[in-house]
Design a protein around this nucleic acid. Structure first.
Lengths: 107, 107
DNA sequence: TTAGGTACCTACCTTTAGGTAAGTATGAGA
DNA sequence: TCTCATACTTACCTAAAGGTAGGTACCTAA
């Protein structure tokens, strides 16, 4: 039962890591939360992220159905980002992930 | 309250990502579980991992106090790996992480 | 001798992730 | 005109992650 279950094409742990791994994705999901945020709002909430990385990661999150992008079609551009149902489920992961980090730091 | 909290030197989400991120760490922690496993046992449980990566990741997990390594000092080498208290807390993260992956795949 | 076992180490390489800097297009205001 | 705002795009680069292949040292068995 233990064998070959982790890296089968549908290994769920790996799936999650691929969806949520990397330096910025969880932080972006955390900032959007249950709101609908402008690109610039996200950027100001995470000051250390570059525009290039934010754009790239938002696109990936959209492609992977964790975030939805709504373009108002205005000039200057006005675009909103909010979480999908999958994104909201990922949001629920963040609290235990943060809790682990908090207790680890406390040592 | 939302500002600058994510990437402060003690940002707990980033802490967790640094401890548990990467291709192999959660899988290794998952395989060790509540047991004490030999190097080769872990390797056979995760057939796709190379010896180099397994050695490297186990060392990192040990350095970061998630795994403890017990060397019996025998020849041929006999070494056991088991989870620390921190490692067991990380183990508890795996179920929700797997559940997210499972429900994501089902879409 | 070879082959198997144990748990690594090292050199070198490829791939991936992330970064910096410059740029785009439009509108409004000074 | 320049400057600010909006949300990107592109080129090029560095750093990090991960991989392959060869090796170490010792033991036992064939």
């Amino acid at each position: 039962m233990r064998k070959n279950k982790n890296l089968s094409p549908t290994c769920p742990i790996r799936t999650t890591l691929e969806m949520l791994g990397g330096k910025w994705r969880l932080l972006i999901i955390n900032e959007i939360g249950l709101n609908s945020l402008r690109y610039g709002e996200i950027k100001r909430a995470i000051p250390e992220i570059s525009e290039k990385m934010l754009t790239q990661e938002l696109k990936t999150l959209v492609d992977n159905d964790l975030v939805v992008r709504y373009n108002y079609g205005e000039v200057p551009p006005r675009v909103d980002y909010s979480l999908t149902e999958n994104g909201k489920k990922a949001l629920q992961l963040i609290e235990p992930i943060r809790d682990f980090g908090l207790q680890y730091i406390k040592k």
